[in-house]
Design a protein around this nucleic acid. Structure first.
Length: 257
DNA sequence: ATGGTGGGATGCCCA
């Protein structure tokens, strides 16, 4: 089973990209972030024509998440973090083929010390507590999404800029990610590679993609029970080369069986 | 250099 995460930065603009990529990459499950679409505008019919069922939670302009599954039922759908009041549509979870999928669009946080940064840390705390109970109920768990955190120095193009005091790499953000992983979640990419400079996001500005000035902030985390099943993981940078691309590339993990 | 590029409920906000 091939499971992927892609921040499309507006599904209105990127539906053709998603359709092309679904045909080329043929993922079994996809978590999508930043759809920026209200639910009545979600292109579920178009995606069904490609063989994908979809569940989604969206809003205008900002945020919006979805899970797609090819030829498989999508069960036990959860929208948002239970018990955590949040206007922003950033979380959707569902069970597919006995695997629990949690799709996160983690708060960006703007800058260290801002209100948005404080919201990011509160939000990550709530995710931690919820995932702890999800793991009890669903040992076969994949937590994927746009984490808006680069795990370590290998995951940034310039560690002097992206340092302990910078947004997306600050100590508190990385500590929150480590704490989440300490529940028993493994960065699938790092199960198979210690390579530096493999990124999933590049700023639209300054020709950053061409110069590979990026970050690896789109992650697929697999639970202890799935660790041995995770036989491959990577980032498909091809869609980032297309016309009018998302600023993110899809991250993926392959589960055996 | 507080810039720069892109999406959208556009003349501003968010990433």
């Amino acid at each position: 089973m091939k499971i992927a995460s892609w921040n499309v930065n507006s599904l209105n603009v990127r539906l053709p990209h998603l359709e092309q990529w679904l045909g080329a990459f043929a993922p079994d499950v996809v978590g999508i972030q930043e759809t920026k679409l209200e639910d009545h505008k979600f292109p579920d019919t178009a995606l069904a024509g490609l063989g994908y069922r979809s569940v989604f939670a969206g809003q205008k302009t900002y945020n919006g998440v979805a899970i797609l599954a090819r030829g498989r039922a999508i069960d036990d759908i959860q929208l948002g973090i239970p018990g955590f009041e949040d206007e922003q549509k950033r979380v959707i979870a569902a069970t597919i083929d006995g695997v629990r999928i949690v799709n996160l669009y983690v708060v960006n946080g703007q800058d260290v010390g801002t209100d948005k940064y404080a919201y990011k840390l509160r939000w990550l705390e709530a995710v931690h507590d919820w995932i702890a109970s999800e793991l009890q109920a669903h040992p076969k768990l994949v937590v994927l999404g746009d984490f808006n955190i680069a795990p370590d120095a290998r995951d940034v193009h310039d560690p002097e800029v992206w340092n302990d005091d910078h947004i997306l790499t600050s100590t508190a953000e990385r500590d929150a990610l480590r704490r989440l992983q300490s529940l028993g979640l493994h960065d699938a990419f790092r199960l198979h590679s210690d390579e530096a400079g493999v990124f999933s996001w590049w700023d639209y500005r300054q020709a950053a993609f061409r110069r590979n000035l990026g970050l690896r902030i789109d992650l697929t985390l697999v639970s202890d029970a799935l660790r041995d099943a995770a036989v491959g993981s990577g980032i498909d940078q091809e869609p980032r080369t297309w016309e009018r691309p998302s600023d993110h590339a899809p991250a993926w993990v392959r589960l055996a069986g």
